[in-house]
Design a protein around this nucleic acid. Structure first.
Lengths: 218, 218
DNA sequence: GTCTATAGTCGGATAGAC
DNA sequence: GTCTATCCGACTATAGAC
């Protein structure tokens, strides 16, 4: 009876452990010994597969970027161009993006990703460039375009960009300041039911922020 | 000509460097040798003043908590009890708190604090308890009470708490996801003028989220 | 492709001089 | 109160067997 039923490849197992360890301890805090041990292999396997600790670190960023990208493209796949949308339709698209982002942020698998990414926000390395260009840039570009359409001329480009950041912040906070969010709400965890409560309120907030005063009410 | 003009005490200099180093590298990534060297003293000074690396780490959390607490109490000092306020007045109080929080988050001195705190969010240690009880708990308790008043019965306690978290998130994002916020806005830094732009939009967002549909418009 | 063995560096803690 | 000197464990990297 093995721990890894179908015996996944060594390099994949290393990557899984690396996401967790680098996210928790950082590049310098995590040790290759501990990563290799948790992956059930020898430390030198890291050298063989990734060329060393830093190589594994960048590979980790690339893997996270790929995973998040695939989840976003699933949502944004057949979405129309922002420029072609009426303001009301743009808001609907923003609801869809916000919902998807919240779902990713609250999912258990996103926890290790988030830890890794937040570290890169504070002390960006080569890995941040990968995350930005692969995931954040396309997602934020679309969000800004949609906010601009939803504003229907009420906001400048800069104002739309700032608004986009505040929208993202409302969702990110539940992952990035999770410990605090749990204390404030008095929860010990965020299950599907509570996720729905959060989603409902963020939906209401986004609508309140973006809907034009005399516009359509969804 | 000395580097430290009035020759500040060794323990204070160690604390300053520790905030920066622990924030950037984490508890395990930062080295006592590097901290002591940057503070211009010997490593054994850490043992003498703080009992070791972990002692310095907790002392760092305590120092950050004190600094933030003093800034918040300056804002919340003569503020009336939330329960005594009309909804409109409660919103005004929330504007004041949001403005103060944003100012702290955007200040240069908050950058090292934020790095330290965000790490604690992801992997809470004993230090998180200090930060929560000294700063976050009183601030968030007041914010939740104000949101509840601003809602004037429209929201349950839980809904008010979730809303409070989303309000905080809009501000935190500019510190916690600063690297991304700068990319999205296209800025290379956030000066006073841009801080005012952000403040204005957050003000508008808070108003849109909290003001009752038929209520007073500020 | 995965392992063991080992080299060389750097970490935190501590003893003891001043 | 601050320093130097030293111990020893943990780290990354690498060579080489299989």
């Amino acid at each position: 009876m093995r721990k890894e039923p179908p015996e996944r490849p060594t390099d994949d197992r290393l990557l899984d452990v690396a996401i967790d360890q680098f996210g928790r301890k950082g590049l310098e805090g995590a040790s290759t010994r501990a990563i290799a041990a948790a992956a059930g292999t020898a430390m030198s396997a890291i050298t063989y597969h990734y060329g060393g600790k830093e190589g594994l670190y960048v590979a980790t960023a690339r893997h996270i970027a790929e995973q998040m990208r695939s989840r976003f493209t699933a949502v944004m796949a057949n979405a129309p161009h922002a420029a072609d949308l009426e303001p009301g339709a743009a808001i609907e698209q923003i609801f869809a993006m916000a919902g998807a982002l919240l779902q990713i942020m609250l999912s258990a698998e996103a926890a290790p990703w988030a830890r890794f990414i937040v570290r890169e926000q504070m002390e960006p390395t080569e890995a941040f460039e990968v995350l930005w260009s692969e995931v954040m840039s396309p997602v934020s570009a679309r969000l800004v375009a949609l906010v601009l359409r939803a504003g229907a001329g009420r906001w400048t480009e800069t104002e739309a960009r700032i608004r986009a950041v505040t929208l993202i912040g409302q969702i990110l906070v539940f992952r990035v300041a999770r410990a605090t969010a749990l204390r404030v709400t008095g929860w010990d965890d965020i299950g599907p039911r509570r996720a729905a409560d959060i989603s409902r309120i963020i939906h209401a907030n986004v609508h309140a922020i973006l809907a034009s005063p005399g516009g359509d009410q969804s």
